[in-house]
Write a protein that binds this DNA or RNA. Structure first.
Lengths: 408, 408
DNA sequence: ATCTAATTTCTCGACTGTCGAGAAAAAAGC
DNA sequence: GCTTTTTTCTCGACAGTCGAGAAATTAGAT
């Protein structure tokens, strides 16, 4: 069923539009907002007045005026309107970042990821969040959103990790990490989903468009994939399919997930290690492989060692076949490769292309663009900010009380 | 970028809401529309008055009033507001249906699909369309939409068949089938996409909800797949990925598409034939296999013939592995199996389940629901109507002239 | 035959929103 | 000090939704 519309929703939508223009371009003047949003000047006056009264945005201190005419009044988000904490979970560390409403990074620290079960893990995160607010002397209640990312499968609507390399199918509910005194909403997303979102937003910013859809492939100990698509409504649609554990080969090598023949069981770091040393494919996979170990194999491969070369080539082929299936089921799209595994791109490339080349989609639409994007951590952080602020802004605008009561 | 909103769009949205309620439930009274849409009674008055003035809806002739109180006034679409033609292309026939704006089928006929290239094909369709309007003495100009369906890959936005079993990658632009005097828009969709859309709408109607996503799998000479998803906005999102030509097995059997190892090259009718007779897998596939031929193989399989059994089982496995990949990349969802191939479900089932069972998604989310839905043709037609009328209604409402000028 | 209750449709005024035009503000140049 | 230029702000017109209650119309009671 379609949703009904009303004049209030119109104002909400257009307020969101103003706020998102401010996010994208930073400080803007009245006229600039009007240009960016397409709304009439009078409408901008009305909306900015509302937002200012609600203490969501503020007029920046005057900067040196340039050119003649009435000086511009720049608007920007009120820094202490609220805060955002991002929690980036990787295999060995948990990184916490505190960001104010204007998007400025206030604090960042990492803590080693301890051993133990999900309870201990959640307790550690809970402590980390407490530490984050205490270090900056910020009221817990003013944290609007905690944005968590991890590898693995996130529940589509709840902040629950449905499957992860570390805890398997034992669910982890991050909502439980917030104790009393916190009012923040908690969201959880797959890491590579955020990367895909960040890449799409970068495209919008630089080319003002470009292809409307892309995939991000993260190579490392595990294999991550995110898809981002610009869709009619305006809000991009991002998802993180279970690519790493899609079937590559029936009855194939044993994977960390317990299944057989997953893509990861051929292309993950542990799989490359296994293949290079000709360990039987049903060997229980290594919990963790230091990058140095794979570097050694890569060095041998680059020196001509056949077995090492084959390990990378097969890994590439698993990825290529997997990508060909991705393109078959999601349509043709460019692929951006990121993660620690990109340093072996020279050894993987041939296999990837071989795997891709056979399929009908590729024969029809051509080889998809394969671009290596090295700096995964900043993409993840960017993705966090994009997604988190769009949610925070939506929530703030949605709660009409804040817009009206604050005006008293 | 988000889209800007305005009060006019609000009216558009709500008018569409009223029209879609009318589509779903048939004739409705003022109060019923209000209940169905959630709009205030006064708003319904205003909108229905507009639509009536624009000659889009009309008050039905009074029917026997029941119960006391002021008698209801029922609204329904004005039949001759415009017409819709559906063109359903199958391997041997082309079926034309003429439907009025109220959704009543006025005429239907089929013509054999001739030989020849794309030009001859388009000319035949052009003639078929002419015949459709002439038989019912309808003005070409009052046909609002021609909705075409076919197997194969449709262009995402244009009515162009990008790949089809018959014409291969030679594109067919159905817009060219309309000559002078026609103002209709032409849309083209994959047949199984329409099936998926129809199944989703049926779920909405009966259960008022149910799972928000499903897949339709059509088994026949070729393999079709459609995905339908209820999404926040209200308009369902339907797509037809290139499932049949997704890679099933690297360097596998030759497919009609020219690639090797496609799902279809193992699960299509010609593939079952090839496997049952132990013809080498790189044999050029048969253009067309009569169902009777496959029936014979099925009979032999049911009588215990090993080779025939294996042919079906391998076909099932190709489908099962393919579906497991679908679930990996699109999330867990129930699958509805349709098409002529459903009559061999008993022989395919085991293979399908075997192929599905191995994967991570299935181990996590359980075996997906597999439901056989026999009557594919009516699903296709239903899908045509759903999609076509939602577009027609949108267009009619969108063209503001019709709403205002008609009031003179 | 008339009155009352029930039910539905229609209308009015209040409210919220967008927009265009032009007034007001404020700095730079002459 | 006046003019030009540029930006912001304000006003009134217009479009839309909503709640309340009036108007319409029938069934049943008296």
């Amino acid at each position: 069923m379609l949703a009904k519309s009303s004049t209030e929703l119109v104002r909400q939508q257009n307020s969101a539009l103003v706020l998102s223009a401010l996010r994208r371009h930073g400080r803007l003047a009245h006229t600039e907002i009007s240009d960016a949003t397409g709304l009439a000047s009078a409408t901008i006056s009305s909306i900015t007045a509302d937002l200012e009264r609600a203490r969501i945005i503020e007029k920046s201190e005057q900067q040196a005026t340039v050119g003649r005419g009435r000086p511009r009044v720049l608007f920007s988000q009120r820094r202490n309107c609220g805060y955002l904490i991002t929690v980036i979970i990787s295999s060995d560390l948990i990184q916490y970042s505190l960001i104010d409403y204007a998007g400025t990074l206030l604090d960042r620290f990492s803590e080693p990821r301890g051993e133990g079960g999900t309870a201990a893990f959640l307790a550690a995160i809970s402590a980390g969040l407490e530490r984050a607010v205490e270090r900056s002397r910020i009221d817990r209640g003013s944290v609007l959103l905690v944005s968590v990312s991890s590898k693995g499968l996130a529940h589509p609507s709840e902040p629950v990790l449905v499957w992860s390399p570390v805890f398997g199918s034992q669910p982890v509910d991050f909502a439980a990490a917030l104790k009393d005194g916190w009012h923040a909403k908690v969201i959880l997303n797959n890491e590579t989903l955020l990367v895909a979102g960040a890449l799409l937003e970068r495209q919008v910013k630089t080319q003002g468009g470009g292809e409307p859809v892309l995939a991000a492939l993260s190579l490392g100990h595990s294999i991550g994939l995110g898809i981002a698509r610009r869709v009619a409504g305006g809000v991009p649609e991002i998802s993180a399919p279970n690519f790493g554990h899609m079937l590559h080969m029936p009855n194939g090598g044993l994977c960390r997930c317990g299944a057989r023949g997953c893509v990861e069981a051929y292309a993950g770091f542990y799989a490359i290690l296994r293949a290079a040393f000709e360990v039987p494919l049903d060997t229980i996979p290594a919990k963790f492989v230091p990058v140095a170990e794979i570097d050694k194999i890569a060095a041998r491969a680059r020196q001509g060692n056949r077995m090492a070369q084959l390990a990378f080539r097969n890994a590439g082929a698993a990825l290529g076949y997997g990508l060909s299936r991705l393109l078959s089921l999601h349509g043709h799209m460019p692929v951006f490769i990121t993660g620690p595994g990109t340093r072996y791109q020279d050894l993987l490339q041939a296999g990837i292309e071989e795997g891709l080349a056979q399929t009908h989609v590729v024969r029809l639409g051509g080889m998809p663009g394969l671009t290596v994007v090295p700096d995964e951590p900043s993409l993840v952080f960017e993705g966090h900010l994009n997604l988190a602020f769009s949610i925070v802004d939506q929530d703030i605008i949605g709660s009409r009380q804040s817009m009206q009561a604050a005006g008293e």
